[in-house]
Design a protein around this nucleic acid. Structure first.
Length: 574
RNA sequence: GGGCCAGUAGCUCAACGGAUAGAGCAACGGCCUUCUAAGCCGUAGGUUGGGGGUUCGAGUCCCUCCUGGCUCGCCA
């Protein structure tokens, strides 16, 4: 990775220039300058050293530049063509041509492995996302969490982390009971035994009628039998919804390694055992017939009920047991638990953190990514959503109307902690302006060039070798594209650490924009398929590398990499 | 009232504490005899909600106020 590479070099230069200084404690940054005239990579080391040494930044910079030039000259593959000071206290490094070509060669050599960190980190992440109640179809908000969890998992895996993707199925609580009651009422209605009386906390959506219908038709359960068959109705209803949910997730390209059932925690006695441990350690107390967990108010919360006065356990109780299980599973394989939650759960975080600490684990190993609400607009007006009222936009509907790729891309474009507006009409009617097509179009354009080359009898694989010097690549835009591609591995590393996959979308937009500019500017004068064999070879290599980086990024984002896109005028009327 | 998130161009959003705050959409004006115009170029658009502070440097960190969303159950 380029940043690490230069960090080592700069640090070496700092140590040589200021041997008496302890460099460990310093915050020397390597950054990518925004302007080309500030070089390809730069460091704030002069400002830092200026402060430490009490000398002007310029003086510190000159000492550093002297050392950096020595290092640069000592290598047979020098990395810099120019190293210079810039106000107020930066050292800017301009990459040498050799260094840039080396990046290209690495991409061609590593192919789908480019950006992937081959070094195994040995750190286990258990990522929980979506985790919707199986009491209704997924709505658009679930979709955002689903895509976020899916992409961040793939990126963590690519960076050498050990990852388990899990869906926690809340199949044990009161909500499930509410669903069953609602289903039974619908059965009554369908069989003409009376009006369906859906309680206030029941579910009113159409899908409840479907479940009831299926139960009668396929399972042969009639309304008279409901008291005896309560468990069967519950299991069927949950199974039915879960199948629907899995189908939706599959349509969205979201994967899981495991579905973990809340009910299994009770069946295995894990909730009971967890409570007993707390009791033995005097971490709980009884009041008004309920069992409370003692939570230090300094941690931003208050005592919370684990077992209700009616003897049932709360969601909190089973969730504690669930987290304990996550930590203990496979001999403690998962050191970090990432939970992707809807923002309406933020008030739940302090009590869970406290519980993690009371379990004897480090609260910092419990990471919550809050995904903010999705505001759905239709004709510019917000739509109120309530699962119980059955009044909401389902994720299925969105996928059907705007497509998997556009849905994923729209979710990925925003930081998770920013609210998102999802205007269905705009995404439908202006679907051709959707940014996802911009990204895919560039890929298709590259494929088109390569296709054309093959049609012309050019044997690309024979011409382009990763060992080449690519002397035909001389245009500034070509070298800039390679440098941009060189940022890709650093970017993935950053995303894995910050859990901010939207950065990948912005990177792809920039890379595509650079390519489109290059393409348009030279399509009359300096084509990829040039008459000059040296130029053509270099440009084919460039285009192959671009295709490779785009494909790798698309795979991580879970969107298609289309070999071609239909031309304007051929598209379906929408 | 307490807590969490946000407030950046007309709209939707970017910007590891770094240098002159950037994209897309919308508006306006241009570019197809071409390796795909779902593209490109140009114009216009800003006191980063207000006010203090921290430092070489603040959209970014701290304090405070204002506005919006969410949340404060023995629901999940």
């Amino acid at each position: 990775m380029i940043k690490n590479h230069f960090y080592d070099i700069v640090l070496k230069a700092v140590r040589e220039a200021f041997s008496e200084v302890d460099t460990e404690a310093l915050r020397i940054d390597i950054l990518k300058p925004r302007k080309p005239e500030w070089g390809d990579i730069s460091t704030n080391a002069p400002m830092i050293m200026s402060k430490v040494m009490k000398i002007p930044p310029k003086e510190a910079a000159n000492l550093l530049i002297l050392r950096l030039n020595e290092i640069n000259d000592s290598l047979n593959n020098s990395f810099a063509s120019k190293i210079e000071f810039a106000e107020p206290g930066f050292v800017n490094i301009f990459f040498s041509r050799k260094f840039i070509i080396k990046i290209l060669r690495v991409i061609l050599k590593e192919r789908e492995g480019f950006g992937v960190c081959s070094e195994k980190k040995g750190l286990g992440y258990l990522i929980e996302y979506v985790s919707a109640n199986p009491t209704g179809p997924l709505h658009i908000g679930h979709g955002r969490g689903a895509v976020f969890g899916d992409v961040i998992s793939k990126i963590l895996i690519s960076q050498g982390y050990d990852v388990l993707r899990e869906f926690y199925v809340n199949d044990a609580g009161a909500q499930v009971k509410n669903l069953v009651v609602s289903v039974i009422e619908r059965m009554k209605e369908i069989e003409g035994k009376g009006e369906a009386l859906i309680p206030d906390d029941g579910y009113k959506g159409e899908y409840v009628k479907e479940i009831a219908k299926e139960l009668i038709l396929r399972e042969g359960i009639s309304y008279e039998m409901v008291d005896k068959e309560f468990d069967k109705i519950r299991d069927f209803s949950i199974g039915y919804m879960l199948t629907k949910i899995k189908k939706t997730l599959a349509d969205l390209g979201v994967k899981f390694d495991s579905f973990y059932f809340e009910k299994s925690l009770f069946d295995k006695g894990l909730v009971e055992r967890c409570i007993q441990d707390f009791e033995r350690e005097s971490k709980v107390f009884e009041k008004d017939g309920a069992l409370f967990l003692k939570i230090d108010s300094a941690e931003g919360d208050k005592d919370r009920v684990l077992r209700k006065s009616d003897g049932h356990y709360t969601y909190f109780a089973s969730d504690i047991a669930y987290h304990k299980d996550k930590f203990e599973r496979e001999g403690g394989r998962y050191k970090k638990l990432i939970n992707v939650w809807g923002a309406d759960h933020h008030g739940y975080i302090p009590r869970m953190r406290s519980a993690i600490r009371l379990l004897g684990y480090d609260p910092d190993s419990f990471i919550v990514v809050l995904v903010q609400m999705v505001k759905v607009l239709k004709s510019g007006k917000p739509i109120k959503m309530s699962k119980r009222e059955g009044d909401f936009v389902t994720l299925d509907e969105i996928i059907r109307e705007v497509g998997k790729d556009a849905t994923r891309y729209t979710f990925l474009m925003r930081k998770s902690d920013a609210q998102l507006e999802f205007d269905i009409d705009i995404l439908k009617s202006h679907s051709l302006n959707n940014p996802v097509y911009y990204a895919q179009y560039g890929y298709a354009r590259i494929c088109s060039i390569l296709r054309r080359a093959s049609e012309c009898g050019i044997k690309i694989d024979e011409i382009v070798s990763p060992e080449d010097e690519f002397d035909g690549l001389r245009l500034q835009e070509e070298l800039d594209l390679i440098k941009k591609m060189g940022e890709y591995p650093d970017l993935l590393d950053t995303i894995a650490k910050s859990l901010e996959p939207h950065l990948l979308v912005y990177y792809i937009q920039e890379l595509q924009s650079m390519f489109h500019q290059y393409y348009t500017k030279y399509k009359k004068t300096e084509k990829v398929l040039s008459d000059d064999p040296l130029k053509m070879k270099g440009r084919l290599a460039l285009v192959l590398a671009l295709k490779n980086v785009l494909k790798n990024a698309f795979d991580l984002m879970g969107i298609d990499a289309p070999e071609r896109m239909s031309l304007k005028g051929e598209e379906d009327e929408e």
